[in-house]
């Protein structure tokens, strides 16, 4: 890898890690509150998986940033302020109802199913290996969330109404997934990462097929609320306050 691309790839990985971490934390709020015990376990597993993936991306980020991969991830997660997080706004939105959380996770899973196989052939070997490991788990996530979207879409008038409402709210936010990141073209030219703009078309086609099977219409167009990953909604601060509270109350202790 060209040395001058190292910081750009590091930023790219930090963005992926933050997306997974914040989504995982939001989803973990369902633990103990999901509609049925089995789903409580399943959705919690899913959140734990995403948290694990975030950990893997943070470690790769640490390597490229010449930081200690053992300790740096905790510093990033527990001691960074909101403006320094690089997640998209979709993942920080409040968990909403079951349809909202499930649809958000589904849209994220489809996106991952699109770019993980490409990342698995990255010219940066550590990235390729991590992506191929994560891709296996993600296949299962997608199957789970897909099954739920179909059932909510074709379940009862209420489940359909809630899912449609969630879609209206989430859709523009989901489109931020495909906003190119800084130096993405240079990274792609070196075979390090795929282009998000190309992923968007594949994502749309997959989502449209599932929506058809769920009696949902694909929203027309739409624009993400921001194209800047440094910009956040007011919800991130509240999430971080809770997520970071214990680590900050007792800094230096080992859990």
């Amino acid at each position: 890898m060209k040395a001058d691309l190292k910081p750009d790839l590091a930023s790219y990985l930090l963005a992926m890690a933050d997306d997974e971490m914040i989504l995982a934390h939001r989803n973990s709020e369902w633990t103990g509150h999901a509609p049925i015990l089995e789903e409580d376990i399943a959705f919690t597993n899913l959140a734990v998986d995403e948290m694990g993936h975030a950990g893997l991306w943070y470690r790769l980020h640490a390597d490229l940033a010449d930081e200690d991969p053992e300790t740096y991830p905790d510093r990033l997660v527990f001691f960074r302020e909101a403006p320094f997080f690089r997640n998209i706004q979709m993942v920080e939105l409040l968990r909403g109802d079951w349809a909202f959380s499930m649809l958000r996770q589904y849209l994220f899973d489809v996106a991952e199913s699109v770019w993980l196989p490409d990342l698995a052939s990255s010219s940066y070997q550590p990235l390729a290996e991590t992506a191929s490991k994560i891709a296996r788990e993600e296949m299962y996530h997608l199957r789970h969330t897909q099954a739920w979207i179909r059932r909510l879409g074709r379940g009862t008038p209420e489940s359909h109404r809630r899912l449609s409402q969630a879609l209206d709210e989430i859709w523009p936010y989901a489109l931020q997934l495909f906003v190119p990141q800084p130096a993405e073209e240079e990274l792609a030219a070196e075979g390090l990462v795929p282009l998000k703009s190309a992923a968007r078309e594949t994502w749309l086609a997959k989502v449209e097929a599932d929506f058809k099977a769920s009696d949902l219409a694909l929203p027309d167009g739409g624009e993400p609320p921001t194209t800047d990953r440094r910009a956040h909604s007011e919800h991130l601060v509240g999430l971080l306050t809770e997520m970071q509270s214990v680590a900050r109350a007792y800094p230096g202790v080992s859990w």
Binding site: E38, E39, I41, A42, H144, A147
Partner: peptide, 11 residues
């Protein structure tokens, strides 16, 4: 059945 299989995997 399909959901049962997914739940069984998780549980």
């Amino acid at each position: 059945g399909e959901m049962a299989l997914l739940n069984a995997r998780d549980v």
